[in-house]
């Protein structure tokens, strides 16, 4: 039996200790927001936080999360309110097909917890373990660097003017 907290809920699951944390979350806990893009730790779609640290859950044996706090994309919003970086992804167009989005959001949360106002270069470096094929990253970097910049940011105006 593996016991940990997922998004502040205590969870006890009967899973083989070496099963992937990704599978335990998706199949065991039915939290399907965490995605599998490659299964070998390259694409970052399966990123979750273990005790606040971003990891590829496809590479983590479930037993390694025993006794830990796990955060998935489903745990970013609280009290019915989106996390600022989720709001920013909506405003700036950071999500397109959306399959990589949960991983980016979780990685971005870890970045913003440590550094609330990253430069664009810092954001690019921090997010380099997550692959996106839709956006060219421009609007993701916009969203992450502006997420905590304050409520007066006009996303559409700063992002792309129509001539």
């Amino acid at each position: 039996m593996i016991r940990f907290t997922v998004n502040d809920q205590d969870v006890a699951l009967d899973a083989p200790p070496m099963s992937r944390l990704l599978d335990v979350l998706r199949e065991g806990a039915r939290l399907t927001g965490t995605k599998e893009g490659c299964g070998e730790g390259e694409c970052g779609a399966c990123t979750v936080l273990i005790d606040g640290v971003a990891v590829n859950s496809c590479l983590v044996p479930a037993i390694q999360a025993d006794g830990c706090r796990v955060t998935t994309v489903e745990g970013l919003a609280s009290d019915g309110r989106l996390h600022p970086v989720q709001e920013a992804f909506l405003r700036f167009g950071g999500a397109q097909c959306g399959i990589c989005t949960p991983g980016f959001l979780v990685t971005a949360k870890a970045l913003l917890d440590a550094n609330p106002h990253p430069t664009r270069a810092e954001a690019r470096e921090a997010l380099a373990g997550n692959l996106c094929r839709c956006t060219g990253y421009q609007k993701i970097i916009d969203a992450v660097t502006e997420a905590l910049a304050g409520p007066d940011v006009d996303a559409a105006a700063t992002s792309t003017p129509a001539c």
Partner: peptide
């Protein structure tokens, strides 16, 4: 027309609620 409104499926996608086939 000509307004950058947030995408209609955006909320589902940023919260992990959007259901892809493997979900």
């Amino acid at each position: 027309i000509g307004i950058g409104i947030p995408r209609a499926d955006g909320a589902a996608k940023v919260t992990g609620r959007a259901l892809y086939v493997d979900d």
